[in-house]
Structures are given as C-alpha cells and as structure tokens.
C-alpha cells in the first residue's frame, strides 16, 4: 500500500491519531537534544540524523512493575499482574531502531514469553522513517543493514521534499492508513524511487565502513586475544553504552514493599558492565575484571546472539560510541577484532 502524505498534513494526522492512542515522536527537548516523547502535534522533528536516545524505553521500560502483591490477614498472598493495555503509536523510528525492536521481539519470545514486552509491542504501531542523514558514529551499513530498511515497521515513511512517501507494511499499518485515508493522497508511480535516492545519499555520508558481516561466526576466535585489555584499560565500566543501546535487553528483578502487607515486584534495566551483575552469593564472580565485562558486551552483540538466533544484536546505530564518556569507539574495537580474525585465518 503506497500513499503520499503532504508535509503540512502531518499535524492533522497526529491530531487524528491522538484520539485513540498516545503518539510518540522525536521532539527537541529543552536541553537541545532530540528525544522520543509523547507529542501534541507540531513540534515533531522528522529530519536530520537519528536521535541520541532510542525509542527502546517505550517497549522495554527503564523500570516497570511486574505484579503487585497483597498479604492477607490469613497469611495468604494474592498477586495482581500489572497489565498495560494502552495503545501507542511511535513515529519517526529510524531503521536501526526498527531492527532493534525486531530483535527484541524475537529475543523476548521463544520458549518462555515475556508477556509485558510482547503485549506492549502488540499495542504499538511502529511508524518508521527512512534515514536521510547519518551521525558521525553511525555504521549500520557495516552490519548489512541499510538506512531505508523496512523490517520491523508497520508503516514506513520517507522524506521526499514536499511530502512524505508512505508505505504500509503490515496489516496493522495498512489498517491505520485505511482509517485515515482522507489525510493521505494517492502516490505516483515513481515515488518508490525516493527510497533508493535516500539510500544512496545517506550511505555515502556514513563515515565508517567495515565489513562485519564477513566476521559472522568468527568473532568468537578473538576471545583470547589481547585487544580487550587495550580497551578495558580505558573503560570505566559505567554502563552508559548498554543503557543507550537499543538492543540491550538485560534487566534486574527486585521486590519492594509499600507497606507491611503490600508491595510490588518490579524490574529495571541492568548492565553487564556492573561488577555486581554476575556476583554469586558465595562471593565468587565469574566476570570480576573490567576486561571480561567489556568482552562480554562485545561478544554478546557479535557472537553469542549469532549462535543463539543467527543474527547480530547490534544495529550499527553508534549510540554506544556517542555516549561513552571516555571515547571508546565500537568501530575501533571491530577493526581490531577483524585484524585478529584475519591474522588467525592466515
């Protein structure tokens, strides 16, 4: 399903969508940064590079209650599952973040299903936006992704000058377009070319390219190399990279009590860079050094998820590099890994 959306019609579309769902889109915060926030109508920013913060927080919340418990006088405990059924529409998600959401969807399914996240995904409509301009840290093409990928999105949009080219991908997305068909216009035949134009210009602007796909299944051989030490010396193990990463899925579970008989079981983001992350009750810590923790983060992204799910859990958004307070660059690490792997093969 292909449509056109005139740029001046965007705010009326958002107004319409807001009637039965929360609309989340990139806006400029008062700190002069682009962030995904619930919007009213006009302030949406659908241009420039990807936002510094990913929309992960609307799917996998920083902290959320899992269930409330009440202890009755008889000592019996009743549990009430926290169940959000709010509908949300997230606009302006770049392909890298769409890939991340797609990964998250697969990760949280499987034998046991994480109902909180899957339910939230079911209740969300994801509107993608082709990426017209990379940031200095972007390297999505290195991972075989492209700035105009549509997988993961329900609707894909692309900036075509005076209008947005809109493409319905899933049933959910097509239905949304159908419901608002008076706002959209019919598309012309060669509108699809917008995508390839954007792809070409955006890919050209990406500063770094290194063929990571060729490293698939080979990153593990760098496990014992000494490159980790080089970076772990500098790394302060803060976890800013993992919390800003759109594919980092780890969480911590804890209980809290509101009163003697009431409380909740909740979870928060957690990071493998933290010392206490793997600490056993006995005091033994399998990843006690900074080196092991840094290696875990990189290995998990480029090797372990390849073993488990046959895909990298890195989308090349480069946020980890951008937020790192000491300037460790993921690309530099990848380049070193490539060198080690290539040397090993000779």
């Amino acid at each position: 399903m292909r449509k056109r959306l005139q740029k001046q019609k965007l705010s009326s579309l958002i107004k319409k969508l807001k009637e039965d769902a929360t609309v989340i889109a990139p806006v400029m915060t008062d700190k002069n940064e682009v962030d995904f926030l619930p919007v009213n109508s006009e302030e949406v920013i659908l241009s420039g590079a990807r936002s510094l913060y990913s929309p992960k927080k609307y799917i996998f919340k920083q902290s959320e209650s899992m269930y409330d418990y009440t202890i009755q006088d008889s000592g019996k405990v009743t549990v009430k599952e926290s169940c959000e059924n709010e509908k949300q529409i997230i606009m302006g998600i770049r392909p890298c973040d769409l890939h991340a959401i797609e990964y998250m969807k697969e990760f949280y399914s499987g034998k046991y299903k994480d109902s909180y996240i899957l339910r939230r995904l079911e209740n969300s409509v994801l509107i993608g936006l082709a990426c017209t301009e990379p940031s200095t840290n972007c390297f999505c093409t290195s991972l075989g992704n492209s700035p105009v990928d549509t997988d993961g999105s329900d609707i894909m949009m692309a900036d075509a000058g005076s209008f947005y080219f809109v493409k319905g991908i899933t049933e959910k997305g097509k239905k949304l377009i159908e419901n608002n068909k008076d706002i959209f216009e019919d598309s012309q035949e060669d509108d699809e070319r917008v995508l390839s134009d954007i792809k070409e210009s955006c890919e050209k602007a990406i500063l770094e390219k290194i063929d990571v796909t060729a490293l698939k299944n080979k990153v593990g051989s760098a496990y014992n190399s000494d490159i980790w030490k080089k970076y772990s010396d500098i790394c302060v193990n803060c976890g800013a990279c993992t919390f800003n990463c759109p594919t980092c899925t780890c969480f911590d579970v804890a209980d809290t009590s509101r009163s003697k008989n009431e409380g909740c079981h909740y979870r928060t983001w957690d990071t493998c860079q933290n010392f206490a992350f793997t600490l056993h009750a006995s005091g033994h810590n399998p990843r006690s050094t900074s080196e092991e923790r840094l290696r875990q983060r990189v290995m998990h992204k480029y090797q372990y998820t390849v073993d488990q799910m046959d895909q990298f859990s890195c989308t090349g958004c480069g946020r980890c590099t951008q937020v790192c307070p000491v300037g460790i660059s993921m690309i530099a690490i990848l380049k070193d890994i490539k060198e080690v792997v290539d040397n090993g093969e000779e």
């Binding site: 976890g239 919390f243 928060t268 990071t271 933290n274 010392f275």
Partner: peptide
C-alpha cells in the same frame, strides 16, 4: 537512567567495586 557514568568517571569516587550501590 542510572547508568553510573557520573560515579565511574568521578575521581572522588574511589570505592570502585565496593561502592554502597553495588
């Protein structure tokens, strides 16, 4: 987001792995 970046780069925070929060 409680990423601990402020704590870990702070030169005055020298408890490292023995910090109260850990």
């Amino acid at each position: 987001i409680r990423c601990n970046a402020c704590r870990n780069v702070c030169p005055a925070c020298f408890c490292s792995d023995r910090c109260v929060f850990e």
